[in-house]
């Protein structure tokens, strides 16, 4: 069951990136710092190092209250 939820979370996230890219005014949103940070954070999923959740949270820290 873990697999199905992980698969689904990944596809939902990918679909959200597609939705943003297809929207009007996407260029400005695409360069939004928060989106850049999310794409960077996705890189942690590819590493074999443990504590991925902690490292993603740390990488998103200090981005301000709306981040």
């Amino acid at each position: 069951m873990f697999y199905l939820h992980m698969r689904s979370a990944l596809i939902e996230t990918a679909a959200t990136f597609d939705r943003i890219q297809a929207a009007e005014g996407a260029d400005a949103v695409w360069r939004d710092r928060r989106l850049e940070k999310l794409r960077e954070a996705a890189g942690f999923l590819q590493s074999d190092e443990p504590q991925r959740a902690r490292r993603i949270l740390e990488s998103l820290s200090g981005e301000g209250p709306d981040a």
Partner: peptide, 16 residues
């Protein structure tokens, strides 16, 4: 509700 098509993805497809 879980693991497969969501309302958001379905409307994305209609828009596409």
């Amino acid at each position: 509700p879980v693991t497969k098509n969501s309302p958001q993805r379905v409307i994305d497809a209609i828009e596409t």
